[in-house]
Design a protein around this nucleic acid. Structure first.
Lengths: 224, 224
DNA sequence: GTCTATAAATGGATAGAC
DNA sequence: GTCTATCCATTTATAGAC
């Protein structure tokens, strides 16, 4: 049976880029779902074709192979997913307040269904797709740490905190934030909503961080 | 359809357990390799049979299905793998020294090939095999944290450190220890040897921990 | 470009001989 | 208990019509 006849493309100048035929967009959307939901190995092209109301032949015509489809879809999705992370905003509140806000947003995002699925995918397929792992790491964890480190560096300069190694401090904070909560969520041991757990974890992490990096200390630490 | 041949009643005094026919042992060993190396989905029973010099029929006779084999093999392997974690030893050195030793051992283990493969497996299959995720979490992270927390509690009592919430402090320390290093290793972005990176990470984490939990503080912080 | 139909290979699972 | 041989569903990939 014929599928719904869609209006043939006549406009190609409106959208910035990402201007593609509806069939391809449907395939992309379906592939995202399938791969994120079932993983690379278990996700089949039959499944993708079915959800996209397309045929496998069309998929192959545009992406060449399963590997090609996976690379294209996931590579693109990475950039889309981690876009919010790159938005480094200027914060002027006291450090603990800012950390609380950043931490909550960060942790919420880490534990969102789509990011959890993404994590499972990268962890299980990272060694098979090095360039995807690379992109993921650069756009995700690395950028998050760099952003927080920049903030810490500022506040160190203003004397509000004492951080000799901002990148390390940022890493510690973010990792403490994830904590066991992330392990439990990613393995399905706990399920949403996580709001209560997130709030508790953020408060505890901020408190620990401030205890470690607050300036008012008597210890005769080395200079600097 | 035969079910899993569990522990046979009889001589369970001499040998701890593991009293089985050589064929089964070969299958178990092969299955461990295959599943840890290629994952659950990609790992095939043909592959297992080949490496075990056995036939698929024999596998089915003893384990019933692929799922059954996986559950049995991985469930058993978890207990074997994380046995060292449970060895809570008594330490009498100063806290930073002990943390350094524990941290190094812990991180080394976390980044060992087999534990990394295990992590990939649990992360990707955790939601499909809840009881495995449960066992893994209880024997791994949870036990590690509990062990460290017990140590911290002792030293808190002796006044050497000030930890109001030992479990949280232990979690923070261990998570800070893993840090980005673990992410990079698990996704294949970096490869062994990790010794240099481990040493650096441990020192930094211990320093941070002591800064946060050392007792010599001016607690004139308003509020607290 | 997109479809139907099919090839070719793989993998989970079983029957039946020994 | 273990093997060989086979079944059958699924899956990647392609050929050829429209």
């Amino acid at each position: 049976m014929k599928s719904c006849p869609r209006s043939k493309p006549g406009k190609t100048a409106a959208a910035p880029r990402r201007r593609r035929e509806p069939r391809i967009r449907a395939i992309v959307a379906a592939a995202e779902q399938v791969f994120l939901e079932r993983g690379y190995e278990a996700g089949s092209l039959d499944d993708v074709a079915r959800r996209a109301n397309a045929s496998k032949a069309t998929i192959y015509a545009h992406f060449g192979s399963k590997v090609g489809l996976f690379r294209a879809i996931i590579g693109e999705k990475i950039n889309e997913i981690f876009e919010p992370v790159r938005q480094g905003e200027a914060h002027h509140a006291p450090v603990p307040i800012v950390l609380h806000g950043l931490g909550t947003a960060f942790l919420r995002r880490m534990l969102s269904p789509v990011v959890l699925k993404f994590y499972r995918l990268i962890v299980s397929q990272g060694t098979q797709f090095p360039e995807l792992a690379q992109t993921w790491f650069a756009n995700g964890p690395k950028t998050a740490i760099a952003t927080l480190a920049a903030f810490l560096r500022e506040r160190h300069a203003s004397g509000e905190i004492v951080v000799a190694t901002p990148d390390l401090a940022a890493e510690f904070f973010l990792m403490s934030l994830r904590g066991v909560l992330h392990l439990q969520a990613v393995t399905g041991l706990i399920v949403p909503p996580f709001d209560k757990a997130i709030a508790a974890k953020v408060s505890a992490a901020v408190e620990m961080f401030m205890r470690a990096y607050a300036p008012q200390r008597v210890t005769q630490r080395r200079g600097r």
